[in-house]
């Protein structure tokens, strides 16, 4: 065996084998990586698909239950709109009434100052004199049509605000299967009428029994 030639051949063979191994390992690794990526992508796809299916199924199932339909939603929507409108109108009426009162206070103070030198030996007496003058002016103003109408507007807008708020609350109660204030009022009305009937009956009975005593 010629050592040199054989050794060279062996070394080449080992090198080739090593290259082949490394290239094979790299290829395998690349394949594995690619496969894993594909699996991951497939999994995500599958999950998304499942989720969509569940969602679709839920929608289908929910649509078979007595849930708020479009008209119910629109009713709530309209009530919300009415509530917002009433709220704005109430705020405006309150601001209008307050503005009238403040304007009267200012006017009264100006009149008081215009009457002459409010200088007094006592700060307390000065303030009390000013308050007394303002009190007279405000009481007189409270009798005016402007004040009474502003107050009426305040009260009626507050009434509308209360009514619209109650309509909203009752929507919520109906959708959540809770007894509404109107239903409770109906029950208490029935009970009240019943009590009156019992009272009348008792009265008739006692009158009927009187002659027997």
């Amino acid at each position: 065996m010629t050592k040199g030639k054989d050794d060279k051949h062996f070394e080449n063979m080992i090198e080739n084998a090593q290259e082949l191994y490394f290239s094979g390992a790299t290829a395998f690794s690349n394949w594995m990586e690619a496969s894993q990526k594909e699996v991951r992508e497939n999994h995500a796809f599958t999950a998304a698909l499942s989720s969509d299916l569940v969602k679709n199924l839920s929608s289908m199932l929910l649509q078979t239950k007595p849930i708020p339909a479009l008209d119910t939603f629109m009713g709530a929507d309209q009530n919300l709109s009415a509530f917002s409108k009433a709220s704005i109108e109430f705020s405006a009426a309150a601001a209008e009434l307050h503005a009238l009162i403040i304007a009267k206070f200012v006017e009264s103070a100006e009149n008081y100052l215009a009457q002459g030198d409010p200088e007094s030996e006592s700060e307390d007496r000065t303030i009390r004199a000013w308050l007394s003058s303002t009190n007279s002016d405000v009481l007189e103003f409270q009798q005016s049509k402007a004040y009474l109408d502003a107050q009426k507007k305040y009260v009626t807008s507050l009434t509308q605000f209360q009514k619209s708020y109650r309509a909203l609350v009752e929507d919520f109660q109906i959708l959540n299967h809770l007894p509404t204030q109107s239903e409770i009022d109906d029950i208490s009305k029935g009970l009240h009428d019943l009590k009156r009937e019992v009272r009348t009956l008792k009265s008739h009975l006692s009158k009927g029994m009187e002659p027997k005593k």
Binding site: L148, Q151, K152, V155, T156, L158, T159, K163
Partner: peptide, 13 residues
């Protein structure tokens, strides 16, 4: 200064 209806609505509210 109120009408009957306005007062009724106020109390009913």
């Amino acid at each position: 200064n109120f009408s009957r209806q306005e007062l009724e609505e106020m109390i009913d509210a």
